[in-house]
Design a protein around this nucleic acid. Structure first.
Lengths: 244, 244
DNA sequence: TAGGATTTGTGCGTATGTATT
DNA sequence: TAATACATACGCACAAATCCT
């Protein structure tokens, strides 16, 4: 268990005073830990997750672990098969082709529905992400790239006060964010990092003048281009490997 | 247990040959039964659902029942409180105000993303719904109205082949469909039935000429007007009761 | 084909939390 | 304030399903 995981599962009591985390809080923390491990490919597609092993790691019985795995299954991150096991799903380009049109529309909606004005602290957090992105250019790190992407996603999603919209956006993001990491070998890493950095700067500019609807449009444009790059490079990779 | 419920839980084996329903199938059926009971107000908002009673009714232990209730909680249909119980949620106008803008956009998207051509059988099913709606005008029945609405919703949602979009649309529908029933006392029932009937006829016309994008726009317009009527009549009801 | 190993699904007793008396 | 009643959360043992030998 990494330091970050430990911080997540211990945490501060949220709803209760000094009285230890409630069942709901324990479950949510465990869910986020496993979800993040899947989305950073620490648990790669195809890996089998053992209920007993997870139960042992987090010092609980299988019951709460099963609760979390069931939730992850409804969100498409794992598949549970009776008698076989629980395996991490492997999102493909076909899944992506269904989810991306939705993500495009939802990104634009985020800037329109119940826009939440950004504070200086909000902008500073994004500026810190740009710094981390710069460091990434010199020392490529898949997991750090995944965490940066996720952190930026949450910053952009927060511009809308519409909770159902945020939940749906998150769900679709976690369903497909892994595919970029999977395709990194065939993608141009420098191009991806540069594109990500310029997206953050564009969003920052729009936020600085308070134009949240523009943030949505910028985000939409970059999601679209990201998808196009993936399709393009995948096709090129297939051609290079000789497959039709 | 009603006859319809019995048919649902027995059903035909879907994935297995004569080998009895799998755990997944049993769970899905139980989920749909309870979900439908909630959405037809057979389980009204505020009602407490006992795990033991449900377990006894469906001849299983509390474990699979808890699995289903947990799923219903993530979808916002019930709230589970440790030590208190599981109660059916009561969606209010504020929730509606957040969900409806989304439903509007998604309705339009349904006609655009992966449109699925309608067959004669598809149209006949909708025509049958119109007939049932006509019968409803003479003998108002809240549950029948709820079931008609739901059946029509599924027919319209089926025009898109985009599975994530359909899932999201369903989720938002089940979160908010009950509120129309709750407001029926202050709404003009005749107006609601007439509006519903004309929506089905409009959709039917668009489907007959194969214009699925128009179906989306029609649906969007009617969802918008439905929302406006609810806000309007709720305000009038408040004014009549003397509350500011 | 049969049987054992391993996995998830289920049943049930107990722990924990909440409200009421 | 303490005790009681009753709800969900949890842990564990066993059943059912699958794979491999």
């Amino acid at each position: 268990m990494s330091f970050l995981d430990a911080a997540l599962i211990e945490g501060q009591p949220e709803a209760s005073e000094r009285a230890g985390p409630s069942a709901r809080e324990r479950s949510d923390r465990l869910y986020k830990i496993i979800r993040d491990r899947i989305c950073t490919l620490e648990y790669p597609p195809g890996m089998r997750l053992s209920e007993e092993e997870l139960a042992a790691e987090f010092k609980v019985s299988r019951t709460p672990v099963r609760r979390v795995l069931t939730r992850l299954e409804t969100e498409g991150l794992v598949e549970i098969h009776h008698g076989i096991g629980t395996i991490v799903t492997d999102p493909d380009l076909d899944t992506l082709a269904q989810v991306y049109p939705l993500r495009l529309e939802l990104a634009a909606l985020l800037g329109k529905l119940s826009p939440q004005p950004r504070t200086g602290a909000d902008l500073d957090r994004i500026r810190a992400l740009v710094q981390r992105c710069d460091a990434l250019a010199f020392a490529p790190d898949q997991q750090e790239f995944a965490r940066l992407n996720m952190a930026f996603f949450f910053e952009v999603t927060a511009i809308s006060g519409n909770q159902p919209l945020r939940e749906i956006s998150e769900r679709l993001y976690f369903q497909t964010s892994r595919i970029v990491l999977r395709l990194l070998p065939v993608l141009n890493l420098g191009e991806e990092i540069a594109s990500f950095r310029s997206e953050m700067l564009d969003v920052l500019k729009a936020m600085e003048i308070g134009d949240l609807e523009a943030v949505g449009h910028i985000r939409r444009a970059h999601i679209s281009m990201s998808f196009t790059r993936m399709v393009l490079h995948s096709r090129q990779a297939r051609e290079r490997s000789g497959r039709p």
